[in-house]
């Protein structure tokens, strides 16, 4: 986040507007990740720490494929993005088929799947670092300088991020209204009953984890053009999205998106008023406060007594 001084003097008001805009854009990016985390968490019941490794993996796959082409025109960018998404979805399905699915068949609890997910995270992050090195990868967007709207500086990449994340969030919300998603909802409330009633839970798990990971990869590619991605960035980003899911009320997609924006606004404000190193700490202070006073999250469904 940079404020470009163009000679205009900034009032407190413009700073707040600028912070709000930056927070909104990064909030929507975080919402992409968090929506993916939410899908995976609710269908597979795995606390998917490895989400961050798919984020990093998506960014690096995109970077590596883009380097193959001499020409970085829009067509090739889209082509590489598509290929990167396919790779990420393939890997996610492999993880699901090889690790999460067998564990679920053994009726393992959340502690055990969480630990296996930690293992996947360590494995993938170190694999990526082994293949591509530990440096931050960053790409330049071949577009002009910032646009000014009511003294608020808007970088071109922010507009792209805003548009793409809105499109995909809209897509996710649209999917959540379709008939197919009813099966997912049934699975969220009771997996074994849903499977007895003919919902193909195996397929839904597979689809949810690939779509969720693809959403993470999209957010990663958008970040690659902005601040860059390094292998260690995965953990912080998973934790932020997990916090968004928990704070937003883990069953509600809209709550997750709302909470992501709230978290991003908090992080932007923290980075501006304190320092960017306090961002994560503040996110988790928020998590603990929500835990103590509103365990079910901001947006919550009423549950029947026996479900609580």
């Amino acid at each position: 986040m940079t404020l470009v001084n163009t000679g205009a003097w900034y009032t407190m008001n413009t700073i707040f507007l600028q912070l709000a805009f930056n927070g909104l854009v990064s909030g929507l990016l975080l919402a992409l990740l968090a929506a993916g985390f939410n899908l995976i968490f609710n269908t597979t019941r795995v606390f998917h720490i490895a989400h961050g490794s798919f984020y990093v993996g998506g960014a690096y796959a995109f970077y590596a494929i883009l380097q193959l082409f001499s020409n970085q025109s829009l067509f090739f960018v889209l082509l590489s993005a598509f290929a990167a998404l396919l790779i990420v979805m393939l890997f996610a399905s492999m993880i699901e088929a090889l690790i999460y699915q067998p564990l679920a068949r053994k009726k393992s609890g959340q502690a055990i799947t969480l630990i296996s997910s930690m293992g996947v995270y360590l494995f993938m992050i170190n694999g990526i670092a082994l293949l591509f090195g530990n440096e931050t990868k960053i790409l330049e967007l071949p577009l002009g300088g910032s646009i000014f709207l009511a003294n608020v500086a808007i970088a071109p990449i922010q507009l792209v991020q805003l548009a793409v994340s809105l499109i995909f969030l809209g897509g996710v919300l649209f999917i959540s209204k379709t008939k197919w998603f009813l099966g997912v909802r049934a699975m969220m409330s009771n997996e074994s009953v849903a499977s007895v009633l003919g919902v193909n839970t195996t397929m839904i798990r597979l689809l949810a984890i690939s779509i969720g990971s693809a959403l993470a990869a999209i957010a990663a590619i958008l970040t690659l053009y902005d601040t860059g991605v390094d292998p260690q960035a995965g953990m912080a980003i998973t934790l932020s999205s997990a916090v968004a899911v928990i704070i937003g009320g883990s069953l509600s997609l809209r709550g997750t998106i709302l909470a992501s924006v709230v978290i991003a606004l908090l992080q932007t404000a923290t980075a501006w008023f304190l320092s960017s190193q306090w961002k994560e700490g503040m996110t988790f202070v928020l998590l603990i406060l929500v835990f103590f006073w509103r365990t079910e999250g901001i947006v919550s469904y009423k549950m029947r007594v026996e479900e609580q």
Partner: peptide, 29 residues
């Protein structure tokens, strides 16, 4: 990096096939 990869792989395999670890008498459900 390779060390951590091998270590993570062993962790995953342990969780899947031998939840008690080398000498454990308790496992997480």
């Amino acid at each position: 990096n390779l060390r951590m990869m091998i270590y993570a792989l062993i962790l995953i395999l342990m969780v899947m096939f031998r939840p008690y670890g080398f000498f454990g008498n308790y496992r997480f459900e």
